[in-house]
Amino acid sequence: MFYELATLTLPFGTAGTAAQNVQAFCTAPEAQGELLACWFTDIGPLNQMIVLRGFADLASLQAERDRTQKSASPFGCGEIFQKLEQHSYQGFPWMTPVRPSAESGISGPVYEIRTYGIKPGGVQATIDLWEQYVPPREKLSPCVVAMVALDGPLRFTNIWAYPTLDARSKARTDAVAQGIWPPKGGPAHLTTDMVSTIALPTAVSPLK
Rank of each mutant, 00 (worst) to 15 (best):
Trp130Lys: 09
Lys119Ile: 09
Arg137Val: 13
Pro135Phe: 03
Ala125Asp: 11
Trp130Val: 03
Leu129Asp: 00
Pro136Gly: 10
Ile113Trp: 06
Cys143Lys: 06
Gly121Asp: 05
Ile127Gly: 08
Pro142Asn: 12
Tyr133Lys: 02
Gln124Leu: 13
Trp130Pro: 00
Tyr133Gly: 01
Val134Thr: 11
Val134Cys: 11
Ser141Leu: 04
Tyr116Cys: 05
Gly122Leu: 00
Lys119His: 07
Val123Phe: 04
Leu129Gln: 11
Pro120Met: 01
Pro142Arg: 14
Glu112Pro: 00
Tyr133His: 09
Ile118Val: 14
Ala125Trp: 00
Gln124Ser: 09
Pro136Glu: 12
Gly121Glu: 08
Glu138Asp: 12
Ala125Val: 10
Glu131Pro: 03
Leu129Arg: 08
Ser141Met: 11
Asp128Met: 05
Val134Phe: 00
Lys119Ser: 09
Ala125Thr: 13
Ala125His: 13
Ile113Gln: 09
Ser141Ile: 00
Gln132Tyr: 06
Trp130Cys: 07
Pro135Leu: 02
Lys119Asp: 06
Leu140Glu: 05
Gly122Ala: 10
Pro136Asn: 11
Gly121Phe: 03
Gly121Ala: 07
Gln124Asn: 13
Lys119Glu: 02
Pro142Gly: 07
Ser141His: 14
Pro135Trp: 00
Arg137Leu: 12
Thr115Asn: 07
Cys143Met: 14
Ser141Tyr: 00
Ser141Gly: 15
Val134Gly: 01
Tyr116Glu: 12
Glu138Ile: 01
Gln132Phe: 09
Ser141Lys: 12
Arg137Trp: 01
Gln124His: 07
Thr115Phe: 06
Pro142Gln: 03
Cys143Trp: 09
Thr115Met: 04
Glu112Tyr: 06
Lys139Val: 11
Thr126Ile: 11
Ile127Met: 10
Lys139Glu: 15
Gln132Pro: 07
Pro142Tyr: 00
Arg137His: 04
Val134Pro: 04
Gln132Thr: 15
Ile118Met: 03
Ile127Cys: 04
Gly117His: 00
Ile118Tyr: 02
Arg114Pro: 09
Gly122Tyr: 00
Gly117Phe: 08
Tyr133Arg: 08
Asp128Cys: 08
Ser141Gln: 06
Val134Leu: 14
Pro142Glu: 11
Lys139Phe: 07
Leu129Pro: 14
Cys143Pro: 10
Gln132Leu: 14
Arg114Cys: 01
Gly122Met: 07
Gln124Val: 08
Pro120His: 04
Trp130Tyr: 15
Leu140His: 05
Leu140Gln: 04
Asp128Gln: 12
Val134Gln: 05
Pro136Arg: 13
Lys139His: 15
Thr126Pro: 03
Ile118Arg: 02
Trp130Glu: 09
Arg137Met: 08
Gln124Arg: 06
Val123Lys: 12
Arg114Ser: 04
Ser141Thr: 14
Thr115Trp: 04
Gln124Asp: 15
Thr115Ile: 08
Lys119Arg: 15
Pro120Arg: 07
